[in-house]
Computed example of a mutant assay.
Amino acid sequence: MTHLSAVSLPIELTDDERQPCEIWTRVMGYHRPVTSFNTGKKGEFAQRKAFVECALPE
């Protein structure tokens, strides 16, 4: 039995081969894809800031 050694070659994709990532967010108690938002809601979503919780002092 012949064993082939695995050569790790970098995989390079063109932009045409890539699949867009679908972003979902929670709106009014349920989840919706951002692509379904109207223009104003998309702008509001882009201006949101991520919440970062600080660690409690010991």
Rank of each mutant, 00 (worst) to 15 (best):
D16Y: 10
R26H: 02
G43Y: 03
T35H: 12
A6W: 01
T14W: 08
L4V: 10
I23H: 13
K49F: 02
E53L: 15
E22W: 04
L56D: 13
D16H: 09
W24S: 09
Y30G: 00
C54I: 11
E44V: 03
E44D: 12
T14Q: 15
E44G: 11
G29Q: 04
T39A: 07
L13Q: 10
R26A: 07
E53P: 02
E44R: 08
A55Q: 12
T25A: 06
F51Y: 14
D15R: 04
C54K: 15
M1F: 11
T2S: 10
E12L: 10
V34W: 05
L13N: 07
V52Q: 14
R26P: 00
I11S: 01
V27G: 01
Y30H: 04
V52A: 13
S8F: 01
R48V: 06
P57T: 14
Q47M: 14
T35Y: 12
D16K: 13
E22H: 10
E17G: 12
H31P: 01
K41C: 03
L13D: 00
H3E: 09
G29R: 03
V52C: 06
R18H: 08
V34C: 06
R48Y: 10
D15M: 04
T35L: 02
L56A: 15
E22R: 09
I11D: 01
Q19N: 11
K41L: 08
C54W: 13
D16I: 00
